Simulated assay, not measured.
Amino acid sequence: MENNNVKPEPFISHAEPVLAVNDVGETVKYWHEVLGFPGHWTWGTPPNHGGVTWHGAFIQFSRDSEGAERLRGQCVWIRVKNIRELYQMHQDRNAQIVMHLERQPWGFEEYVVKDLNGNYVTFAALATSAGESKSEPMPATVRTLGRMLTVAEYRNLINSVGWTNTQSDELLREKLDATVFVAVAENSATGEAIGCALVLGDGLSFFYIKDVMVHRDWQRKQVGSAVMREVKQWLDVHAPDGALIGLFTGEGLAPFYQQTGFGPAFGMIRIIDRSQLL
């Protein structure tokens, strides 16, 4: 039976700030010539509206002198790549940098520019590992193998890395039983599971790697790399030719996974929210 009452679900595809400014033309010129935004446009003669673009960043400006004075000090936070090169460019163009490039406690490198309207633009990028201590060699007591995790081992690793998990032991057991392979790093001296990676999939054309974890006491000792090598070796043997291997990760961890042959790809996700289905 057809359901003619099904309505399309709304989704948010794009957002951009609209800043009140005194002079749209001069503002667009500044963001183009000083801050470097290549895309720029204005509307009206003289301009009463305009904007700039740069890859995924879009900023609009509206002529509103009263609003510009009342809202002076507005802030736009822009995430970038190659932040050091951008920082150098803004220095060369004599942008008014009011906070110099620094690593922040929340894991980003950031600097702040004050524009000609008195508004603040924060440019930010995930902090690199430059200046951090390098990983230690993997201890000789660590071994990796393929085996099932117990629920207690799985929960211990989840708690160790700071993930929130309130699921019951029964549900965690079901999740572990649904795997096609589990790579486990053990402390051979005690038999303790100190790291893992779960592989799910149909066993034929698609495999998905999730829950790559290393106990906090064993991090930066190349345990995670050893776990991923164990996963790669298993997939090289058991995954059919042409199978797709997927995982989700943050930008900061991309180089780690690239070591085992993963590359960036465009994707889309949907997360079920039962509260919206009632």
Score class of each variant (00 low, 15 high):
14 H>I: 04
255 P>K: 08
136 E>I: 10
134 K>N: 08
191 G>R: 05
99 M>T: 06
39 G>P: 05
247 L>Y: 06
119 N>V: 04
269 I>D: 05
241 D>E: 14
137 P>H: 11
182 V>H: 01
139 P>C: 07
221 K>M: 15
138 M>K: 14
69 E>K: 14
87 Y>I: 03
225 S>I: 07
178 A>P: 03
38 P>Q: 12
209 I>K: 03
233 Q>I: 14
268 M>G: 13
211 D>K: 03
56 G>N: 12
108 F>C: 03
11 F>D: 02
5 N>L: 14
172 L>S: 12
261 G>P: 04
113 V>E: 01
120 Y>K: 12
160 S>I: 04
246 G>D: 09
238 H>D: 06
54 W>Q: 10
193 A>Y: 00
257 Y>L: 14
206 F>W: 09
217 D>G: 04
96 Q>M: 09
157 L>A: 01
41 W>Y: 15
181 F>E: 01
104 Q>A: 09
72 R>L: 04
16 E>H: 15
86 L>T: 02
161 V>F: 04
24 V>A: 01
63 R>D: 01
20 A>R: 13
65 S>I: 11
199 V>Y: 01
27 T>Q: 03
121 V>C: 08
146 G>M: 05
132 E>V: 08
137 P>C: 14
133 S>V: 14
269 I>G: 08
221 K>I: 08
155 R>W: 09
174 E>N: 12
8 P>D: 08
69 E>Q: 11
249 T>D: 03
23 D>H: 04
161 V>I: 11
202 D>S: 05
189 A>D: 15
193 A>Q: 01
265 A>P: 02
169 D>N: 15
215 H>N: 13
125 A>I: 02
141 T>W: 06
104 Q>H: 14
55 H>D: 13
151 V>S: 01
224 G>I: 02
117 N>M: 07
264 P>Q: 07
32 H>S: 11
164 T>C: 10
212 V>K: 02
250 G>F: 12
266 F>C: 09
125 A>C: 10
119 N>T: 07
4 N>E: 08
203 G>F: 03
181 F>P: 00
271 I>H: 10
170 E>W: 06
13 S>N: 15
232 K>E: 14
